[in-house]
Design a protein around this nucleic acid. Structure first.
Lengths: 212, 212
DNA sequence: CTTTAATGTAAACTCCCTTAACATGAGCTG
DNA sequence: CAGCTCATGTTAAGGGAGTTTACATTAAAG
C-alpha cells in the first residue's frame, strides 16, 4: 500500500499524482474523524508531502472537500442506478433496491457520504458539485416517475414529491442509524429493515398493492 | 444587548453567570459557522472573558458542546410535548402537530439542532445528554403508542418502529431542507408541506382513515 | 543548453490549547 | 466588622499545529 504512484518509478521530486492522493487521504481522514476532523495539513501529511504542497492543486481545504463530495455523488449515482437496474425485475422491487443501495452506500462509504451531506458545504460551491448531486437525485426521480405511472390516472401523486419523501426518509435513517460507528444510537432492527418497512407502508398509502 | 448580567451592576471582577454566557456564545457561534466552526477561545472571546476562564466551568470544548446539546434536547422535548398536547384535539391532528413542532424547532434553533444531531458528539458522552435525548424521543414514542391503539387489534404495527419511521423522516427533511440557510437545496414546496404530505401517506398506509 | 512552468520545501507567522501562579470578591464565622 | 476561605477570573508562558509566502528543484519544450 503506497500513496505514491502505485507501480511505476520511485517518485523523485514530483509526486506524480498528488491530486488523487490528496482526495484519497481526505477520504480516509474523514472516515476516521469526520468531515471537520481533519485539516489541510493532515491531508498533506497522509499523502506524504509537505504542508504547502496541496495548495498547488486545491485553493483551500473547502475546495478539496468539494472534490471529494463530487466524486462521492458520482459513485452514489452509479450505485443507485445499479439498484434501480432500469426498473427490473419489476418497478416496485427495483424501487426497494434503490433504498437498499442508498443505505449500502452510506455504510460502505461513510467518508463520501459525510462529505456529500454532513460537511456543511454549500451545494453551489461549484457547478460540477451541484450537477453531480442533481444527477444522483435524478435516479430517484426517474424511478418515482416510473412507479407513479403504474397507478390509475386519477390517483397519481407528483413524482417529485414522492422522490423527496423517499430521499428524506433514506437520509434520515442513514444519518441517525446508518453507520455502525460507535456512539450512534442502537436499534432493535437494522437500518435496512427500518427503511424497507417504512417504504412498504408508504407505498401502500399511495395505493400500491401490498404484494407486488 | 450585553453578555454580562443583563440589568444589575457593571460586572466587576466576576462575570456573574459565565457558564450560561458561554453556552449562549457557543450557540451563536454554531449558528454562524457550524458546530465545528468555533473554538474554546472563540467562545471565551464572545463572552468577554479571557481564554482560560472557560476551564473553570467546562473540562474542554466537547463538554461545552455537550451541554449545549443537552439544553437543546430539553427544549426540543418541551416543544414536541406542546405539539402533542396530550393527544388533543385528536390523536391524528396532534401527531401532525408533533411533526410541525419538529421542523419548527430545527428552523428556529439551528444551533441547538446542530449540536444535538450534527456535532459528532457521542450520545453517551454523559448520562444527562443520553437521558435528555431519550426523553425527547419518548414524546414521539408515546404519541405513536396512542395512535397504534386506535387501530383494530390485528393491524397494529409496533409503536417503536412507527416512531422511528417518523423520526427518521422528520430528521431527513430537517437536515436536507429544513433550514433556510443559504446553500441548502431549494424546493417546490415548504419543508412543512413535505413532511405533512409524507405523514398523511404513511398513516394511510397503516390503515388510518384518509380524513381523521 | 536555456527557458519556463509545474511542483515541493523550508521557514516565518499566527493562533489555539493548556496549565500555573496570582488577584479579586462574596459569603461565612466569630 | 475583621478575617478566613473558596469560587471565579486574569495574566503569562509553554508547546504545538495550521497557513501561507518566498525560494528551490525538476521536467519538459524550444
Amino acid at each position: 500500500m503506497s500513496w505514491k504512484r502505485q507501480d511505476r518509478e520511485e517518485r523523485g521530486y514530483h509526486h506524480g499524482n498528488l491530486r488523487e492522493a490528496l482526495i484519497k487521504a481526505a477520504r480516509e481522514l474523514i472516515k476516521e474523524k469526520g468531515p471537520a476532523g481533519f485539516t489541510f495539513a493532515d491531508a498533506a501529511r497522509s499523502a506524504g508531502v509537505s504542508a504547502a504542497a496541496p495548495y498547488r492543486h486545491f485553493r483551500d481545504r473547502e475546495a478539496l472537500l468539494a472534490d471529494v463530495a463530487r466524486e462521492g455523488f458520482q459513485r452514489f449515482e452509479a450505485m443507485l442506478s445499479t439498484g434501480w437496474a432500469g426498473g427490473k425485475p419489476d418497478p416496485i422491487t427495483a424501487f426497494h433496491n434503490i433504498g437498499r443501495a442508498y443505505l449500502a452506500f452510506a455504510r460502505a462509504e461513510p467518508a463520501y457520504y459525510a462529505a456529500m451531506f454532513e460537511s456543511g458545504l454549500p451545494p453551489d460551491i461549484n457547478v460540477e458539485l451541484r450537477a453531480a448531486g442533481d444527477r444522483a437525485f435524478g435516479v430517484l426521480r426517474t424511478a418515482a416517475e416510473t412507479l407513479v405511472g403504474l397507478l390509475p390516472a386519477g390517483k397519481r401523486p407528483p413524482a417529485l414529491m414522492m422522490s423527496l419523501h423517499v430521499w428524506s426518509l433514506s437520509h434520515g435513517i442513514a444519518s441517525l442509524f446508518g453507520r455502525g460507528d460507535a456512539g450512534r444510537r442502537s436499534l432493535p432492527m437494522t437500518a435496512e429493515e427500518l427503511l424497507e418497512s417504512a417504504m412498504l407502508i408508504y407505498l401502500q398509502g399511495l395505493g400500491f398493492p401490498p404484494k407486488a
